[in-house]
């Protein structure tokens, strides 16, 4: 089937297999920041934004993105860079495999929640697993980032 969508501002039209998942579509187009950590929608590594909302690209058919706008870390620009700097300063990216998904979800969270509490942050991001960091350094980075952005 034919789909047409925007990825990171670029229009793509393509004939795809109906069963193709969005994650595979994106990776095959070179957006390899999108990572897969599971087959059961449990890890959050594959998070991208569709029309500004975070979605799990492993659990969505590429066909459903037809007519929508997708943003991956490659296209997340300044916002991602700003947060990435806080992550790096904390050493919060260890293996880094979970970072793209986390960063996308943090960007979405910042839009959605105003002055979130620690508990709200944890709740919002609870679907983003990280096996390396123990989450504390990520939280330090997130809090500093939100603070910085609000001044």
């Amino acid at each position: 089937m034919k789909i047409s969508l925007t990825v990171n501002g670029r229009k793509i039209q393509e004939d795809i297999q109906e069963s193709m998942l969005l994650i595979d579509f994106l990776r095959s187009h070179g957006y390899t920041s999108v990572k897969r950590g599971c087959e059961t929608s449990n890890c959050g590594l594959c998070t991208v934004l569709m029309d500004d909302h975070p979605i799990l690209s492993c659990s969505m058919l590429a066909a459903r993105a037809d007519g929508h706008s997708i943003v991956t870390l490659e296209g997340a620009g300044k916002e991602a860079e700003a947060f990435a700097e806080f992550m790096a300063k904390e050493g919060a990216e260890q293996c880094g495999f979970c970072s793209p998904g986390l960063i996308m979800n943090v960007i979405a969270m910042k839009k959605e929640l105003k002055n979130p509490t620690k508990e709200e942050i944890k709740q919002y991001l609870s679907g983003n697993l990280c096996r390396c960091s123990g989450y504390m350094s990520q939280m330090r980075a997130i809090e500093k980032y939100l603070q910085e952005e609000s001044v």
Partner: peptide, 21 residues
Amino acid sequence: QPVVKKDAAALLSGKPVYTDD
């Protein structure tokens, strides 16, 4: 010192640096 990881920029900008990439 809290030196930033050498691969931080690549990892945090989603560069294709892992096996399957």
